[in-house]
Amino acid sequence: MTSTPQRVRPRRTDEPARIPQRDRGKLGYWLYLIPGTLLVGLVIFYPIVRNVRLSFFHWRGGRAPEYFAGLENWVALFSDQEFLQSFKNIILVIVAMVIVPTLLGLVIAALLFDVVGRRFGARLSSFLRATYYLPQILPIAVAGVMFSWILKPNSDGVLNQFLTVLTGSEVEINWLGGQYSTAMASVMVLMIWIQIGYPVVIFMAALQRVDPQLYEAAELDGANWFQRFRAITLPMIRPEVFVVALTTTIAALKVFAPVFILTNGGPSKSTYVPSFYAYQEFIRGTDKGYAATIASAITILVVVVAIIFIRVQNRAERKDA
């Protein structure tokens, strides 16, 4: 019988296929990987190889000749004001896409689950959850156009109209094109608005794992909502907090559409993010080698962040075990 419990897991690479083998052994399974491998090679790895190679050349594009540049492009990156500015902005993007949504998401999820769900009914809480999630499935471009309408610089803009009514005098602030602070803040508000539903849904699902008796016991013991949140909710959903932080950080490093639609990088290139900068350089720049360097740098950063996160998570899991 095969049901003898295995004490020691064999090396994973030597494990047999899960369907008993009669014919060609495992070789036949490789056939199933052919379409996927060809596609990923063509669409993902060919561009990676081509861009990394190009980052060591100067190239105007088209039929122009390539000139070997060595590390010139990579060195230039570190004294490029626009590139450095785009990375400063990424920190603000991380605040808007990772930190604020995760913190707000924790509070909202706990509110919906612990108070609304238990005391006012599960239907109301799942309705509110769906509402928070709605911006997540809206195309970012559509959300961006909606916000750019609200933030229009003249009296067509909703926000300006509001302020005009509130202050009693004509307000015409150029939110998106006037100055860096309002432009960047607008981009951040859009990101928070889009992002908030994701942690709410993930955290609420995680809370379902928690034994409700735990809450009731704490409640009987006189623990208030905040104490329950700190002592029960937070420790229980730590793995999910981690996953949300990882996935949204990676998304933040790759962010493009909100900036493209709201500010187009302006005013005077101050709201550039790395993706937008690379895109601009590919389209309007004079050196595709340099554009490829920017894109490669972002790719390396994303992969490094992903590896660090996974390492830390594995270590945390081992500690828990």
Binding site: G36, I44, I48, S296, T299, V302, V303
Partner: peptide
């Protein structure tokens, strides 16, 4: 992991070669 790269790579890395 190789397949997951497709999810990690920023799209501006793919855009010009593709």
């Amino acid at each position: 992991l190789v397949f997951l790269m497709a999810n990690l790579v920023p799209q501006e890395m793919l855009f010009d070669p593709l």
